[in-house]
Write a protein that binds this DNA or RNA. Sequence first.
DNA 1: ATTACTACTGGACGAGTAC
DNA 2: TGTACTCGTCCAGTAGTAA
Lengths: 237, 237
Amino acid sequence: MCPGKRETKVPPSAKASSIVKPRDILVLKTIALLGGVNDHVQLSSGELGELLQTTQQTASLWILDLLDRGYLVRRAGSRKQGLRLTPKAIDFLRQEHADYIRIFERSSVMQLQGLVISGLGEGRYYISQPEYKRQFKEKVSFVPFPGTLNVRLSGGDLSKVRILRDSDGMEIKGFQKDGRTFGSGKVFMATINGHECAVVIPLRTHYSDVVEVISKDFLRDELGVKDGDRVEIKIKV
Amino acid sequence: MCPGKRETKVPPSAKASSIVKPRDILVLKTIALLGGVNDHVQLSSGELGELLQTTQQTASLWILDLLDRGYLVRRAGSRKQGLRLTPKAIDFLRQEHADYIRIFERSSVMQLQGLVISGLGEGRYYISQPEYKRQFKEKVSFVPFPGTLNVRLSGGDLSKVRILRDSDGMEIKGFQKDGRTFGSGKVFMATINGHECAVVIPLRTHYSDVVEVISKDFLRDELGVKDGDRVEIKIKV
DNA sequence: ATTACTACTGGACGAGTAC
DNA sequence: TGTACTCGTCCAGTAGTAA
């Protein structure tokens, strides 16, 4: 009844809507390289077409398609449109990045660098839960100190965390308590500045640039680190 | 006269043959993730089709296309074919990897790690050429010691070298002498294990996993390193 | 079991053009 | 300038099937 209208073109399944087309990689990566991760980039459909070896019309269609599917947001400009990647698109590109790390940086030791930051005391709260405590004792070779060290990872290393999510680390099962959900995660034995520790990667929550490090000791004292200090984490994968 | 024959479908221009199709990225990356970089992987067209959400027939066509264009080599198996990426394909994937490093690891300091190896005395020979010597003196802030330290980069850092090739470093122009060609390159001021140095990236030759480091001192003595030792290079980009 | 040919077709792309 | 619509073409992908 409405031939050609975009709204009527319902994706046949939920899965289909999440499917990325081969050309999506090209388009999103191009915009990312122009700075579309952190900011709007002024990019006309004609310019994009030239960059991707296609016509202005086709590039325009691609942009519309990506806008529809929530990979791009647009800010109308008087002359050129401003394009910016959504978190969904950045997420997708990070997954790609992780794939290339897997291909070219395959190694038995994953090295992460980051800065010590103050948490909100949540780590202490979580690790004090008897259910988590029990599982940690079972999986790691030490009794965890009741508190975690929060480390904010630098941009590139963030993609490596995705690899950990897919690696076979020790699983910490989630549970329910007092109507609250405690999510599941994976734990990896590691060292932080040479000191034995374990790194916790939450599985349920969305990606964050912070990992939580547990140890038998109070790491801030043991390592002599304070907020803003750089630490190096080595994980045996 | 030979309709439908692959051989008759001549690419209209040399440039066209080097063009990669969007789907190429998916196919090559999938094979790379299965280990096709270092070895043949047993992968039927049906399996590849499943991985890429398409039919066996289409996957078969894609493979034939990539074989034709020199991105894949095949080893016939009794049951399944063995597929392996060619250097051309690995090269292409490294370029992709470099793009993602550019997107997510943008930083003013590029950090490289590698192992000290013995060169063939070529570094000494090259750096002794008066023409190179003159240019080095002009570009870098020290008089180079007549010899280079060869550093073999680890897998992942290799992709970073591509970024340097495209960065605006100081250019060393190539020249001809005694009928021999001395290629051009780019020089970047850097530090190696904290010691001031310059890193030379050749432009003409094919990618190699070795970079040459020059300094005013004899670096092996100055840094106290020998073959096989790990060194850290920091380049201000 | 594989791979890969042939014929067919639907959707993607380009040209023209309106805004 | 820009963006994005309609329409016509054609090629990439599918099904069927041979080897």
